[in-house]
Nucleic acid binder design. Sequence first.
DNA 1: AAAGCTGATTCCGTAATATGGAATTTGAAT
DNA 2: ATTCAAATTCCATATTACGGAATCAGCTTT
Lengths: 251, 251
Amino acid sequence: MKSLHKTLDIIEAVAKTNSVGIRQLSELTGFPPPTIHRITSTLVERRYLKQDPITRRLSLSIKFLELGNMVQQRFNLKAIARPYLENLMVELKESVNLAVQDGDYVAYLDHVRSDYTMLQLFTKPGARVPLYCTGVGKIFMSRWSPSELDAYLRRTPLLPHTNRTIVDQSKLIAELRKIKALNYAVDNEEMEQGVRCVAAMVVDHRGLPVAAVSVSGMAKRIAQARIKAFAESLKACSRAISRKMGFRDTA
Amino acid sequence: MKSLHKTLDIIEAVAKTNSVGIRQLSELTGFPPPTIHRITSTLVERRYLKQDPITRRLSLSIKFLELGNMVQQRFNLKAIARPYLENLMVELKESVNLAVQDGDYVAYLDHVRSDYTMLQLFTKPGARVPLYCTGVGKIFMSRWSPSELDAYLRRTPLLPHTNRTIVDQSKLIAELRKIKALNYAVDNEEMEQGVRCVAAMVVDHRGLPVAAVSVSGMAKRIAQARIKAFAESLKACSRAISRKMGFRDTA
DNA sequence: AAAGCTGATTCCGTAATATGGAATTTGAAT
DNA sequence: ATTCAAATTCCATATTACGGAATCAGCTTT
């Protein structure tokens, strides 16, 4: 599937820029102009790319928004969760996020930005960050079986993003055990210097993990003393979403 | 580009379902199973599709959310507009939408749902509806040159979506002239029975149309008597967004 | 106005790739 | 164990994608 790989390379190259010409794409991807031309004109024909009629420059089209919104299950989750996230933001006066696990990464689905803080969020919807250095990621990991965790640790180097990132495997394992017991996770400036984050799990109708809700903000504002309170609010919120997803905790 | 067309057909078929098997995809698209298999496994490898490890069923992956969020310019517009849309929703107590023109269609980028109404919005982000029977669409059309309008009318049958849809070309032309003069457009149950909508234009730094803001709700609530007031609020809102986009109206 | 330049587009003989029927494997259900 | 449906692999063949070279289109410079 050489041509398909090329096509995807081209789409990704276009995504990285805001708009590109064919020549430039040729340099970015290493494919000759006729190849680029053939593929992009098909993509334009199918409305995946849009081409400025005068400059002939290419960019991603609305089609991807359309498809992005069709990423199912996730879509329902997002719609169900939204009002709860908004309430939680108002209650805590901090930015609130909704995220899912996507392979070895955390993918952010939605966020409600706090009006009360200036924090520039790094959690744009669709953004992907590693599991081991985020509150959301660690709460997912805390539910893994030992063999799953083992396989993950074997393939993933624990790179320090800040000086607080947990880079020691046994410390991470201990942290995950603690998280499992407490039922919430804290990211103590492990991903981004000065940013703290607290996360709790959302489960589906059978009690299986599907998403996590998190609160993130400047470390000064998410003070150690307040973390317990944040965690309780988060747990209440995620429990409410879980119930709305069909989970019955009367077991 | 036969294989690319097939690939896109497959992606679109997967998008329509929540999750499909290869056999089922083969029926949906008409391509034999080995062809589907070859293409989907490449897409899975590249993370465009995700495959349930046990059922082997395919669905769109987070990748499309990622790409959807990279649809540029639009993204900035969305971020800039969001707080204004929220204010407008609070002010009018009705759902507010942000939309752009996408070829011969209106594509909704964002919406702020009113807490005050039960209306199930048909304007999900990414949704596409015709230009001629929506407030947003008509406001775009009101800025077209006669030749553009003419070409559009020649290729587009004015199908009735409700008994109020404008299906007469000369009536539509007159309506657009009126809209241009008033600087706002009304969709009077032309797209959906019982739903009214008022729209105003957002322009970029050079005064060119880029998007439209609209208010939509049950016809009872968007009463004829209130439309003028709605239009004024909308125009103020869209002017504010336009200014934020760099437009200077001191001419 | 003409020449020069840059990038987009088209051409076309060739090599490589996608094709899909048939065979095989997987795994669930009986 | 046996059956069955679906997924996956195989492979000879035809088709398609390939990309260098030529051409075209829209600018800028002289």
